[in-house]
Design a protein around this nucleic acid. Sequence first.
DNA 1: AACATTTCCAACCGCCCACAC
DNA 2: CGTGTGGGCGGTTGGAAATGT
Length: 343
Amino acid sequence: MQYLIQENLPAACRALPALRTKSPWTEEEDEILVSYIARHGANKWDEVARKSGLRRGGKSCRLRWKNQLHPRLKKEPFTVEEKDYIVQLHKHYGSKWSLIASHFPGRTDNAIKNICNSLTKRKQRAAGKIVHPAAPPSPPLLVPPAPPPETSGAMAWRELPSIQHMSSKRTTNNDTFISPSSPLMEDEDVEFWINSLMQDDQMPSMEDLLSEALRKPVDSTASAAELHDVEYWNSLIQELMDGPEPLGQFADSDSFAADVHELIPGEVVASPTTSVLSDQLFPYDDMDFEVMQQNSITNWPEGYDFGDGELQQNFFPMSPSSIVDVDHCVEMPCDSLWAGLDF
DNA sequence: AACATTTCCAACCGCCCACAC
DNA sequence: CGTGTGGGCGGTTGGAAATGT
């Protein structure tokens, strides 16, 4: 067999466009590679390339094994649930393909990237090729988006380190955190941000979910002000927690239930709206708290505690009156925290 | 049926980092 | 500390397959 092997060509030849042809792997090459790895293991890829007799570079061998030949690879087409979860994770992590792929055992970063790119392009075409200008990145999430039901990634994502910093939106001039209700964020940004969080799903309202869970209408006498009051929702959630039936039974949103189970001990379910709230309520992660601790900031926002060397998040009460600029170690008032949230 | 265009994804590139020496 | 090597990562590309005309 004769192949045009880029890796074996002099750099000057590789630079010639006419010679830069890709050569697909043949079955025979695959057999040689699999056989070699079975005998010698999958490491030292340059050695694999040299000693196996393959006229391929080490990198090429590694990629072929990792992306196509590894026995643990899932070859089935991506399910709708997987695709949805990929989109969620991409919104959360950005182009961290290997990180996203780690949520999908048996899937490769390359496959995830291809799927995501094609979904993105399809979405752009469907939207008439209109791309959101300067779309705000995801806010700092307390937890990654919950995996879809029946997805093996359900176990994987909990083991990942927190990288909320990567998605935290900070201004370029003063490095403060921006909440969606912050005056530093434009109204349309707030709307887009909330819509992004809500995604494209027909999510039931918190009111509906709670009502269903309680098997009774949410207090019809509640005023509009009360319906926007954290204490009101706290009392309802507390009622759920104290109720006669485990709330998980009522979940019609498994993914969100998983989110909430991370936040609240016990069998609790709430609506996606609470997810928006929780992002507002817990705009910090462990690393932020490390910085705050190192700088001797002890006046934690209400609802937070730092005990036993770990960030403790108290879900009740959940009404911080301030946010902290961890970069400058100053506490900032946050009167408008709830403004702009339409729930 | 034939050709053109679009979509998809395997394969590759170039950069980067960790580590050994 | 500088250098070389191995390997991982995200971005890009080539070409086969699918779809449209």
